[in-house]
Design a protein around this nucleic acid. Structure first.
Ligand code: SF4
Ligand code: SF4
Lengths: 141, 141
DNA sequence: AGATAAAAAGACTTTTATATCTTTTTTTAT
DNA sequence: ATAAAAAAAGATATAAAAGTCTTTTTATCT
């Protein structure tokens, strides 16, 4: 479903959601080490998210990445679409060129329902909400 | 979710399900042309499926690929797992190393349901059943 | 038996995704 | 002002996926 890049990005953002604030920044290295993800690669992803205003950063000593109030209230979907592109949730599961109700693919009924379910979830819940669930339920990124 | 290879394979098998029988074979070229898929590449996939007894073939003049009675009664899941490996349905959606109920990932609840639903479907329904749905409902591969 | 048609197998190429390395810019602390 | 720390940007490298091409084998038909 999601690319490796996207998985890294989701995890990093959720991690930042409960680890950072505008004056509690964290460096790429710490995130990468914690999540056990390639550092320079994650840096790229975070930069991309920063350019799209889904993550914030400050340079220089004591700088680092963090989530602003605005950042944490974005639906997680934006992070996903920023990395994997807006097609992730609309692309056909069977790779057919067009998905229409008139000409749907063989797996239509079931595949559609479940993908739609995932979309609903990341589209509705914000980064902060999902991160809250994580800490409350003792889950781990 | 599925690799391109897997999508090609699913479509090819469903196509064969209503186009072929032990004495109605079809060549790679016809399948590839109909599905608009790269021929030599599809050939590889069909060969792999054949080696795993999910598709049947005969060589020589008037030879080609087809589905035996046994082939069409396999759950579609086997085709998927033959191409994408058995991990497709067990691998973590977020790429975490281990997925356990004690230590589940942030998207656990919803993501799990989504994937489980898809698994149920391709695990229960046979190739023939799904193909029948296709023709009945006027869907297209 | 010989010719032929098709799959099977293997080698190879291209493209895309993933990962690393190097240099530059910006900010903060001294 | 200067030094240092960190992100930003760009270039490069590696690996995996997708696609192509060539040769070999096998079945069928005449
Ligand atoms: S509903 Fe069916 S046709 Fe549409 S994108 Fe999903 S799998 Fe493809
Ligand atoms: S349930 Fe959660 S932890 Fe388990 S595989 Fe799915 S996404 Fe990963």
């Amino acid at each position: 479903m999601f690319s490796k890049s996207c998985k890294y990005a989701i995890r990093a953002v959720l991690y930042m959601a409960y680890k950072t604030s505008p004056d509690q920044r964290v460096g790429v290295k710490e995130i990468a080490d914690t999540l056990d993800v390639p550092g320079p690669f994650l840096a790229k992803l975070l930069q991309q998210l920063t350019r799209n205003n889904l993550v914030s950063s400050v340079k220089g000593p004591n700088g680092g990445f963090f989530l602003s109030e605005k950042n944490r209230n974005e639906p997680l979907r934006k992070v996903v679409e920023c990395i994997d592109g807006p097609e992730v949730f609309s692309a056909c599961i069977l790779g057919l060129p067009v998905c229409s109700s008139e000409n749907p693919c063989p797996l239509h009924t079931q595949a559609f329902i479940y993908r739609e379910g995932l979309l609903q979830m990341v589209g509705k819940k914000t980064v902060a909400e999902i991160a809250a669930q994580v800490t409350q339920e003792g889950l781990s990124v």
